[in-house]
């Protein structure tokens, strides 16, 4: 499987509210990320918009429906449509989540948590092997946010991810907000998570907002909070060149607000790397 070389840059999710901004002008981002499934369609305006944006900027395809942790294997139709889109768009890379979304009978359309067991790891690795083989490219997988753990868990999530990447050659998309959310919900130390991640396998970082509460919920509907910015700075001091993006999927503000947040990510990255060099 072809390696994905480290690539540094700062980007945003391409959402419908901002299509006009991206089509009519030059938005100061290095790349955009799109939800793959929104463009795995037969034709019409969405594909035309994506192709026009792609002519200006690198694009990352980020999926939500591969269900890489499904005990029932992968959906051939989904994979076929994803390959068609990837071949058409020539993205920087294709990513999805460490989760499952369906059984053979039903689809939840949600990113559901996996038991962190040796058995589940074997299923995930087999599925990743098949997906990468079918697509003809290495993929990235994102650490999920989760709201429950299973009694049968045998390892922490960071060990699961590290082993998964080692066995399949896949890369990692590190969602810093998801680490924070899961750390709050399950009571582990976010620093332990970061320390357990193989930094050289990370190619992308997500930043997003969440809803605090007794259970913290990953809602992507608010600015990145200070605790996540702090964790981001720690993460960036460990990582090499990575693509960093702000994810906003609900209560989407005007583009300048997101660009201001992205500017903070640029500054925080420079500061983190400067601190690392000084040390």
């Amino acid at each position: 499987m072809n390696a994905i070389a480290p690539w540094g840059g700062f980007g945003l999710g391409l959402r419908r509210d901002h299509y006009h901004d991206f089509l009519s002008g030059n938005v100061a981002v290095d790349f955009v990320e799109v939800i793959s499934e929104n463009f795995m369609v037969d034709g019409g305006r969405p594909l035309r918009v994506l192709e026009q944006v792609r002519a200006k900027l690198p694009v990352i395809l980020h999926g939500v429906s591969m269900s890489i942790g499904s005990a029932h294997g992968l959906d051939r139709e989904h994979l076929t449509k994803l390959k068609t889109l990837a071949d058409r768009i020539e993205p920087l890379w294709v990513s999805d989540h460490l989760c499952w979304t369906r059984t053979s009978a039903h689809n939840s359309h949600d990113l559901l948590p996996l038991p962190l067991t040796r058995g589940a790891l074997g299923v995930v690795c087999d599925n990743i092997d098949r997906a990468q083989e079918f697509l003809g490219r290495a993929m990235l997988f994102e650490n999920p946010s989760s709201y429950l753990t299973f009694p049968e868990d045998e390892m922490p999530e960071w060990e699961f991810l590290a082993e998964m990447s080692l066995r399949t050659g896949c890369y990692l998309l590190l969602d810093v907000n998801n680490i924070h959310v899961s750390a709050c919900n399950h009571g582990f130390e976010a620093a332990d998570y970061l320390a357990g991640i193989p930094a050289d396998r990370v190619r992308q970082v997500h930043l997003a907002g969440h809803t605090p509460g007794e259970i913290v919920i990953d809602t992507h509907d608010a600015p990145v909070c200070d605790a996540v910015w702090d964790l981001y700075a720690k993460a960036m001091s460990m990582l090499g060149d990575v693509a960093v993006m702000i994810e906003r999927d609900d209560a989407i503000p005007p583009l300048p607000e997101l660009l201001t947040e992205l500017a903070r990510a640029r500054i925080s990255t420079s500061a983190a790397l400067g601190t690392e060099k000084a040390a």
Binding site: S70, H72, T103, H106, L112, T117, G119, A120, V123, E152
Partner: peptide, 17 residues
Amino acid sequence: MSALALRQQEFLACLLD
């Protein structure tokens, strides 16, 4: 059926109903 398949079937049944 594997332990994972059983767990996922059970989880989804709880989710749907």
